[in-house]
Design a protein around this nucleic acid. Structure first.
Length: 279
DNA sequence: CAAGACTCCTGACGGC
DNA sequence: TGCCGTCAGGAGTCTT
């Protein structure tokens, strides 16, 4: 579920609750939640360790431990993390006792989320593109990146090995604001439009972080239990049938790469090859 | 290399 | 009310 702004918000709020805390015990209630090592070794490995730092890479959250190892996790569609006194819901797949008497709870309705205990990030992370908010992801990078691959824009931006952290919401929102149709071929995007896309992605993500992410249903809540506010600023995502907030044209929904895709046909003109498609 | 199908899971929702 | 099909913010694997 959560994309970069949601994971960033979660990590920021977990930081004061977790950094410096020692894990005094752990339980796993759904074995497949633990990607590696085996469940028992995971529990043994985290028990007694102090959490030194909480940070994020793409949509992954990372808890550095005091023995050089780290817990790396992904919330996928419906994962949530809390630091509370009591289990927050009926979907806790793993939980950790903290030395201040509270617990760290990993909850996930659909059981797609994963936790791993590793020494090096590459043991669990697939190849990942640059952080969208880093200096590396600038206009020049986007121009070169779009040219070097022959992909449809939307699937390319969703590809974590191209750029890290974007998901379905923020790709749709970024493409709309950049005036680019999701079915455009990456290598045919003019350089000036590619530069605009890079700037737009940074702006959209920054604004979403400012709003503490997006919550349009019950699944995303910050560790403080609050919904995000960015869904109020959506221009296309989930707005099919409603008027475009930029030009008034009805927002359309098509399917691209098996993903629901929202766009304004006036703000985002179709590429020639896609005319007549996507109905 | 690119793109589509299929899979992992559960719950909510619309239609009948 | 209840049953059924469909869909969901992710991503890995396999096939074409």
């Amino acid at each position: 579920m959560p994309e970069l702004p949601e994971v960033e918000t979660i990590v920021r709020q977990l930081r004061p609750r977790l950094e410096g805390r020692t894990i005094t015990g752990a339980r796993v209630h759904w074995a497949r939640t633990i990607a590696r090592p085996a469940k028992a070794a995971f529990v043994r490995g985290v028990t007694g360790r102090r959490i030194e730092r909480c940070w994020r890479r793409g949509k992954y959250f990372v808890f550095d431990l005091d023995d050089g190892r780290r817990i790396v996790g992904h919330l996928r569609m419906t994962g949530r993390i809390y630091v509370e006194q009591q289990p927050p819901d009926d979907y806790v797949r793993a939980d950790f006792d903290l030395d201040d008497g509270r617990g760290l709870f990993f909850s996930d309705v659909r059981k797609f989320g994963r936790l791993a205990l590793v020494r090096e990030m590459h043991e669990i992370l697939p190849p990942m593109g640059p952080e969208p908010l880093s200096d590396e992801m600038d206009g020049d990078w986007m121009v070169a990146g779009l040219r070097s691959r022959r992909r449809l824009l939307k699937p390319l931006l969703l590809d974590q090995s191209f750029i890290a952290g974007l998901g379905n919401i923020y790709v749709d929102e970024s493409l709309h604001r950049a005036g680019l149709h999701p079915l455009r071929s990456s290598h045919r995007v003019p350089a000036d439009r590619a530069r605009r896309l890079a700037a737009t992605i940074r702006d959209v993500l920054s604004e979403a972080i400012e709003a503490e992410g997006s919550s349009f249903d019950v699944f995303y809540r910050t560790p403080e239990g609050q919904p995000g506010a960015y869904q109020d600023d959506f221009h296309v995502y989930g707005r099919d049938g409603l008027p475009c907030r930029t030009c008034g044209r009805t927002i359309a929904r098509i399917v691209v790469g098996q993903r629901g895709t929202h766009l304004c046909r006036r703000c985002q003109p179709a590429p020639r090859a896609a005319l007549g498609a996507g109905r």
